[in-house]
Nucleic acid binder design. Structure first.
Length: 272
DNA sequence: AGGGAAACCCGAACGC
DNA sequence: TGCGTTCGGGTTTCCC
């Protein structure tokens, strides 16, 4: 097994299925300590710990915004929401400032779920597909061709903004990435999905992949203090750029609310 | 089916 | 300076 650093955040390496994420492979859980019961989708902290104990990690991966940790029986699903983090270290002491769930392996290694805002969740499931099966396709899936995407858009009649945020339609896009993708594709957030022609569909799919790749490259967006290390916020074209000039045409970026979500777009480049 | 609203959280930013 | 209010991220649930 690889050497472990003192305390490290593993979430991003788990997401890419590389590096530190793999250092939990093969380890066997001994138990868990739950400080915030709502972090876990289980009847009780005790039953969560009891069920986890004895199960061995057989694989790690990601589907949509979920981190999946496959076990010798069942799977752990972790959703970080906005402020969650996974930390890997040693010993029994909390690894971070906002420890909600500490999971202990039988060799003194600790996997900790830290979450300042208590929004994140962990599920211990016998069948992860019960949750993941409801998700839409992965944006980078090669099977998601422009033709397939066009059919998906035509099969619904919804505004693009809420449709792209719908994890059952396409997995993995949050508010930032939808605003950035629609700006890149020059599509209005309120445009009906059935009205997106083939050319625009191609632009949208390329834009989604581009902004996600950029976000990954920049280690995500540090939009406030709970997110660390990300640089993507320095490259936003539309999101949170209200009244700033559109990088393409100079028109001030407009903010409106769509489906209770702040929505930023260029009224000149992105027309209905 | 689509859309709107509320609920869950809490630190930061803002208004007074 | 200190207080109260508002905001926003993702998702579920309820209601029209």
């Amino acid at each position: 097994m690889p050497e472990l650093p003192e305390v490290e955040t593993v979430a991003r390496s788990l997401v890419s299925g590389q590096g530190l994420g793999l250092s939990v492979l093969g380890r066997r859980f001994a138990g868990a300590k739950v400080s915030w019961g709502r972090s876990i989708a289980a009847p009780s902290a005790r039953s969560f710990a009891q069920q986890l104990a004895g199960r061995q990690v057989t694989g790690v991966g990601r589907r949509g915004k979920y981190i999946r940790i496959d076990l010798s029986q069942g799977s752990l699903l972790v959703h970080l929401r906005m402020s969650g983090d996974l930390l890997l270290g040693r010993g029994e002491a909390p690894l971070g400032r906002f420890s909600r769930v500490q999971m202990f392996f039988d060799d003194d290694v600790q996997l900790s779920f830290d979450d300042a805002r208590k929004f994140g969740r962990i599920w211990l499931l016998e069948d992860a597909e019960a949750v993941l099966g409801a998700l839409g396709p992965e944006p980078f899936d090669e099977a998601l061709t422009p033709a397939v995407f066009h059919r998906m858009l035509a099969a619904r009649n919804r505004q693009l903004k809420p449709l792209l945020l719908d994890q059952a339609f396409i997995a993995g896009l949050g508010n930032i990435y939808v605003d950035e993708a629609l700006w890149t594709a020059r599509l209005h957030p309120l445009q009906g999905s059935q009205a997106v022609d083939k050319a625009a569909t191609g632009r949208l799919l390329r834009a989604i992949r581009k902004v996600l790749a950029e976000g990954i490259k920049r280690n995500g967006a540090s939009i406030d203090w709970v997110y660390r290390g990300g640089e993507f916020q320095n490259y936003f074209k539309a999101y949170q750029q209200t009244d700033e000039p559109c990088p393409r045409c100079g028109t001030p970026i407009t903010r409106m609310v769509v489906g209770q979500r702040g929505t930023h777009y260029c009224p000149n480049c992105q027309r209905l």
